[in-house]
Every structure is written in C-alpha cells, then in structure tokens.
Design a protein around this nucleic acid. Structure first.
Length: 800
RNA sequence: GGGCGCGUAGCUCAGUGGUAGAGCACACCCUUCACACGGGUGGGGUCGUAGGUUCAAACCCUACCGCGCCCACCA
C-alpha cells in the first residue's frame, strides 16, 4: 500500500495511467468468448486538432465503453481518422505554396506524395490528443479512410452501386465552388441572406412591336439566356407566347414560352430563363425541350465569363469575373435604356461551407447516387424501431430529410481522395445533335466502364467493342491502352494513333467513404470474425450537425451492403457553446481549448463536466467555473481516500456487499445499492446528466458528509470492511466518468487487476428499510440541531 | 413557407399532474487532527404571457410574446 500524497495532481497521474492501460492492452483485453459490444468513433479529420466538441463526443463514447468493459463485455471502440478531401488538400497546398511549390506544376502524383508525407508527419495529431482525454479506444485497430484495405471497400461499394443502378453519371446543374473548382453536394451549401438588388430589364420583341419586362437578381447570367417565360394563364402576356425577343446584349433571338414557374405576382410576371446557370431555369429549360448538352454556358470553372456555344457574347465581356461582368452588363443596359428599375432586396444566396464563396450552378457531368432509393430502408429502420433514436425528437428530422432526399453528387474535382473507379473510352457511335438555332454539333460519345481494377475496365471495353461487332482497335486484344487524361486520349484519337481509355480524374465525396465506417473498419468486404461479431454496432454517438452528412448515409449504406442497420441506437448530442451561449468559432475567438482545461483541472474534471451538462436535446453552455467545481469534487474524493487510508481501511475483498450488523453500515450498503440502481437506469436511458448527478451526490452528500463523519473515530472491523467495500464501489461506479483518479486511488491498495477491467458492481444486497429510517432520522435530527444552533448563535465550540 | 427546440432562483440547468430542486454565485459563522479545491447555516423563484382541461398544472391543451436552430428553387 502506497501512501497518497496530500494533494491531488491530475497532471502527475494521467499520462502514466494512459500509458499503462494502452501498453498492457487493457482497452481491449482478450475476451473472445465474451459478449461483444461495439461503438465506432466518428473519425476526426487528419487535419484536425481536438476541440471541445470532440471532447464532448468522445467523453460520451468513452463513458459507455468503459462501463461495458466493466460489465465484462468484449467492448470494441473503433478509432481512426478521416482523409477529409478538401480540408487536407487545402492544408497541403498551402504548405507547398509557402515553399513556392504549385500543385498544378508538380502534378497529381507528386502532390499526393506530399499529402502522404504530410499525413505521416503531422497528420493525426488529434489521435494523440484523444489520449489526453482518456479515450479508451482500441488503438491496435486504428483505421484511416485512405488505408489500402479501406480504399478497396470504397471502390467495391461504388462499383456495386453502379451495377445495381444506384450510381449513375449525369449532366445537370451542380453546386459548383469556383474557389476550389469542384462540385459539392447540396448539404455543403449554406444559404445566407445577403443584401442585394432586384433589376427589372426590358427585352425588345424581335419583331419590333414592343418589349417585355423581366426581373432578375443576377443580371450577369443574361448572357446565357435561352428564353423568357410567362405564366400560361397570365392574360397580359398570352399574345406574346411563341414570339421571340432580341436579347439586348447578345442579340440572340430567344423565344417567349409559357411555363408555370413564372409567377404572375412577382415582378413583371415574366422571367428570363437561363437554363445553364439557375436551378429553376434548368427545369424550365428541360420542359421547354432544351437538352442539357445544348444549354448555353457562359462561365469557366472560376466563374469567369467565357464565350457561349453560339459565340454571341461581346468580346469586351469575356474573361470578366462574375462581379465585374455584372457591373459591365448593368452599365451597358443602362446605356441602351434597357434598365427599367433597380430595387434593394435581400437575396438568399448560396455559399460553399468550406470556401465561403458564392456557389455557382454550373452544367457539368458528375456522378450521382440515387439517394432516394437508398433512403427508403433507412427511413423504415427508424420507423420500425430497428434504430432507436435518442432523443426521440430527432426522428422527425430524420423522416423529413430522407423523405425529401435529392440525388447525391459524389464526384469531386480534387486530387486527394478515393479515385472514382471509372474508365472512359470512345462510344464508337456518332451522335450529332441539333441545337435550338438549327446548328448541328458533332458529338463524340463517351462510354464509361466502371470496374474495381484497370484490368477489369479493359476487359469491359473489349467486350463492349465485340458486342458492337466492331474489330478491336490495335492493341486491345492484349490490353486496352490507358492514358492519363481525356485530352491525351482525344489527341491520339485525332491523330489516328489508337483509341485508349482514360481514367476518371475525380475523387469521391469524403462522406461517401465515411458512410462505410461501421463495417469497412471491421474488414468488409471480407467476412472477417470482427465483422461478424461487431456489426451491427451497438450505439453511435454523434453531434446532430452531422446527422445528414454522416449518420443517415451510414444507415443507407449499411443497410444496402450489410442487410442490417449499422447501429441499434443513435444518440445525438448538441453543440458546445461558450458561457454566453454563442457558437464557438475561431474567428470569434471564443473557442475553449479542451487541452488547456485538462492542463488546468485535469481530464477527469473536464469529462465529468461535459457529462454532467449533457442533458438530452440541449446545447451545452460551457462555463469554466463548472470544470473547476468538478475538479474540487475530484479533490474531495481524493481526500476521502486519504482519510480511509489513515484509518487502516484497505481494499475490499469481495464484490458482493459484506455482512453488516451496525445500522450505519447497513444503511450505507443500501445507499450504494440505490445509487447503483440510479446509475444503471441512467445508463440505460443514456442520461449522462443523471449519471453524474447520482454519483456526485452519493460521493459528496452521502458518503463524505454523513457516512465518513458518522464512523469517524469508530473504525471497528465491520466498519472497515464496509467502508472499504463502499469506497471500492464508488471507484468502480465513478470510473467511466473519471477514469484517471479512480484508477490511481484503486492502485493505492494492492490489487489483483486494474480498475479499468474491474467488475461493475453487483452488491447482492438490499436496502434495509429499518437502517434507512434510522439514519434518515439521525440525519434530520443532526441537521435540525445544527440549524437551531446557528439560529441561536451558539458558538460551535460549545459542547452539546 | 415547413419543421424542431428553448423561455424554472443572480448565472447555468434538472424536474414534467399532487407541499418548487441542484451546482455556482451571494450572506453569516467556522484556521475542529481527510479535505478552505473544505465544513456548517441561510436568503432568494406568482416556473415567459393569457386562456382552457382537472379536485389538483411549472408539468396536459390552445393562443400569443421573446430567443435559437434546421430544411425549402420565390426570379
């Protein structure tokens, strides 16, 4: 038995214990025969560092994991990191930039080498920080979403979805981020209100019989106007339907069409239609018979003006940015007298959630997941109760989103990520199209071969030409040639030097791969032992902010590929806010650094605070005073242990409660039993605040304030035995919340095993109602005496 | 436009049909041999507003006020 120091210093013990647990493999002791229990950690970005949100999320997970481990289960907490496509590419690109190295100059392969190098060096700092928190995850099982094996799983899923018709390529408008020059999904777009203007323009009729007024918030896109729409029932314009207008800037002749999209109440009731640059107009355009391939495009990838297919944009506008193009166009319109009116107006404007720039609807070929079909079983799983959602209020949000889900754009024009397993080649059939102005465009058809390997794609290509009963191009019989890019391929093609394939340059949305986390980390698609034992996971804990991004997609992919829900319970927690309730952000400078709090108060205090403040369905307003308070609680516990030690109270030799005669001992045993019951109930309901409340009040309000005071100076053998047992139960019950101090105090006595693998309490005892009544009476009596004494101003030194 | 949540002591939050709770803060007392990161005592709330249901409402219902969040193509 080692003597405890007088003061409790978390810093002195935390690192030592973590190292001990990890090196002895105690986070996942060998329990092949035990009942499995599984949770996967939302993989933090490799670029990330531990912020307070991670601290909350992982505390909640660790609390459950530690208890399940103590319940004797084979508790597996899967840990790993996410490659985080855009975020990581940005970081590495910035690093290279500072060394005057440009991504475009060094090329894809060299750039990816740099990313991997960066990942090896500084990536994953966050996993080291997770250790500070005490996260008892299975590091031997650590995964990365770009591990070779994981990549195979991702590729397999993509190819399978393609075979099942759930993944397809389509040309349509996407949310285009002109800063990162990639497509992004609907979820990555944040709509914000921006003070803007509402322009009313006058478009002259082509037959010079008048003009029609149209209104717009984006005059610059008029360069790609293809129609003017009016409501079919709008009497004012009925006679104009079918006529043409002569576009005031491009001179393009554009039809006036009838479409219900035009709202007679709004503006003039007539609206310009720019199918290539507006989501509504795209639909109107399709209804009007325009094919996506023929829709006019006036922007390049950076949203600078480029010439439309019909060559009608005036030279002086080419190359201008969106903003400058707007100014120039408005000026021109004004000059021509085509500008009728300008009004101030608040415009809901789409922004890229990472880039912060205005998103441009842009016509491109992208890969889409048929999310609606995948969503159905995920929707049902919650409705049928196969997934329990805690708190229940999120069920509605779940239904609402999945019921209205749109196709998910999964291709990204980035380099860092899972390369899309598609190879393209000539379709070997000409498909000429005729545009609205009667001009014929030669189109070279492109055929996609989706396969897990290049060899497979080559074979598919060969099979394809054979099916068309065409002779295989030179070299194809041996192996279809593959070149780097489409440009390279077409060049060879034009020169008559073969018809090679080229691989898709794009990568997949990061969330596409993280959606596989609950099973791909367990070895899927191989039928591993881990997979059989640990899928479905028991519970997932995540912030509600990634409910759609991650949770819902995990459910969709999990059910599709595993035939079962990914987890039985989905627990959603809120955001951690500052003491004033404001959202923490780096720019506001109100972030709380969890590592700083750990330095000042210890990991146990931070963990206890986060758990105590985690009440379902509410955000957490973190106040440092609270952390300080629970640091004090740890000190209280520490001193109780010292007191017991001074009085010769050692370790308990039994898990079951000892036999006791004295009412005070029988009472405290009953109090342990009741506390345990409260704690177990709180765990069943995932009520972290109640867990913390139950153990806090038992330790401080019952054990320290009353039991210890009552037995002071009267430590007979029975009392020592009971005190030892009760205190051991405290250590066990508190361990999931405060693992470090409890393990340290546990080890103050000789023990056959560490607390982390000790058994969860089974007192095999009952509350003794007589002892309880007696002690309750005594507590009340003493309290009343004290109260009376204070009220009568009796000096405390006076003897009763 | 739709959906969700919140409004209880100075602050942060539990409670959810039957005499209002916790922590912190505050006031007073205590350098008593585990602990001043402590011990003891105490003050403080017409539970957002207005109706309704009920023997009984902070808790259920309705409306309203205030705050926050999410989703949605109003040019």
């Amino acid at each position: 038995m080692s003597e405890l120091p007088k003061t409790f210093d978390p810093a002195a013990i935390e690192e030592r214990w973590y190292e001990h647990w990890e090196s002895r493999g105690l986070f996942r002791p060998d329990r092949a025969d035990a009942k499995p229990w599984t949770i996967v950690m939302p993989p933090p970005n490799v670029t990330g560092s531990l912020h307070i949100g991670h601290a909350l999320d992982n505390t909640l997970q660790d609390v459950l994991t530690r208890r399940e481990r103590m319940l004797g289960k084979d508790a597996l907490w899967v840990v790993g990191t996410d490659h985080a496509g855009i975020a990581t590419q940005m970081v590495v690109e910035r690093n290279l930039d500072s060394q005057s190295v440009k991504r475009a100059e060094i090329g894809r392969e060299a750039f990816l080498d740099h990313v991997w190098e960066w990942k090896a060096q500084s990536g994953g700092a966050i996993t080291r920080q997770l250790r500070r928190l005490g996260a008892s995850c299975d590091w031997a099982h650590e995964r990365f979403t770009m591990d070779e094996r994981y990549q195979r799983a991702v590729t397999h899923v993509f190819v399978e979805l393609y075979k099942r018709g759930l993944v397809y390529r389509d040309k349509r408008l996407v949310n285009w981020d002109p800063k990162f020059q990639t497509a992004i999904s609907d979820l990555e777009v944040e709509t914000k209100d921006v003070q803007g203007k509402f322009w009313t323009l006058s478009y002259p009729l082509a037959d010079n019989t008048g003009a029609i007024q149209v209104a717009t918030t984006r005059p610059e896109t008029m360069l790609a106007d293809m129609a003017v729409a009016v409501h079919p029932d709008d009497e004012r314009y009925r006679a104009l339907i079918g006529k043409q207008i002569k576009h005031p800037i491009t001179g393009r002749l554009v039809p006036i069409i009838a479409d219900e999209h035009a709202d007679p109440e709004l503006g003039s009731g007539a609206v310009k239609i720019t199918p290539g640059h507006d989501f509504n107009d795209f639909e109107v355009g399709k209804r009007a018979g325009f094919k996506p391939a023929d829709m006019l495009n006036m922007f390049d990838a950076q949203a600078h003006v480029v010439q439309t297919q019909d060559g009608l944009i005036p030279e002086d506008l080419l190359g201008l940015s969106r903003e400058n193009a707007r100014k120039a166009i408005v000026a021109k319109l004004e000059e021509e007298g085509a500008l009728v009116r300008v009004e101030d107006r608040v415009i809901p404007t789409p922004f890229g959630d990472r880039s912060g720039v205005v998103i441009e609807p842009w016509l491109t070929d992208q890969w889409y997941v048929d999310a609606a079909r995948l969503a159905l079983p995920a929707l049902q799983a919650v409705k049928k109760g196969d997934i329990r959602v805690v708190p229940e209020t999120w069920k509605k949000t779940w239904y609402n989103w999945l019921e209205n889900i749109q196709p998910w754009c999964v291709s990204r024009q980035l380099w860092w990520g899972h390369r899309i397993p598609a190879w393209y080649g000539a379709e070997f059939e000409r498909r000429d199209t005729v545009d609205g102005n009667g001009v014929t465009h030669a189109q070279i058809g492109i055929k996609a071969f989706v396969a897990e390997t290049e060899e497979e794609a080559q074979q598919q290509a060969l099979a394809y030409v054979r099916k068309l009963e065409l002779p295989a191009p030179p070299g194809w019989e041996e192996a279809t040639p593959v070149v780097e890019s489409e440009a390279e391929a077409t060049e060879l093609w034009m020169k008559g030097e073969g018809y090679p394939l080229w691989r898709d340059q794009d990568v997949l949305d990061t969330w596409f791969s993280s959606a596989l986390w609950p099973f791909a980390t367990l070895g899927w698609p191989e039928e591993t032992e881990d997979l059989k034992r640990h899928y479905p996971n028991d519970v997932l804990i995540s912030g509600f902010d990634i409910l759609f991004f991650w949770d819902a997609r995990m459910a969709m992919q999990g059910i599709e590929f595993m035939g079962e829900v990914p987890w039985r319970t989905l627990y959603l927690h809120g955001l951690v806010r500052d003491a004033q309730g404001a959202k923490m952000s780096k720019s506001k400078g109100n972030t709380v650094d969890p590592l700083g709090l750990i330095d000042r108060y210890g990991a146990d205090a931070l963990r206890f605070t986060l758990a105590a403040m985690e009440s379902q369905g509410r955000d957490i307003k973190l106040d440092e005073k609270r952390v300080e308070g629970y640091r004090n609680f740890a000190t209280k516990l520490w001193n109780a242990a010292r007191f017991l030690q001074m009085n010769g109270v050692g370790p308990s030799d039994s898990i079951a409660a000892p036999k006791a005669e004295l009412p005070v001992n029988r009472w405290i045993i009953g109090e342990v039993v009741e506390t345990l019951a409260k704690l177990n109930a709180a765990f069943d309901e995932l009520r972290y605040d109640e867990m913390a409340d139950a153990i806090y009040h038992f330790v401080w309000g019952t054990f320290c304030d009353w039991y210890v005071e009552l037995v002071k100076g009267a430590f007979d053998e029975e009392t020592k035995r009971v005190a030892a047992w009760a205190f051991d139960q405290i250590l066990v019950m508190l361990h999931p919340l405060m693992p470090f101090i409890t393990e340290e105090l546990w080890s103050a006595n000789e023990r056959p095993y560490e607390l982390i693998v000790a058994k969860w309490p089974e007192p095999e005892a009952q509350v003794d109602p007589h002892a309880k009544a007696e002690l309750d009476w005594l507590v009340r009596l003493v309290s009343e005496v004290r109260s009376a004494r204070t009220e009568l101003n009796v000096p405390p030194s006076a003897k009763l």
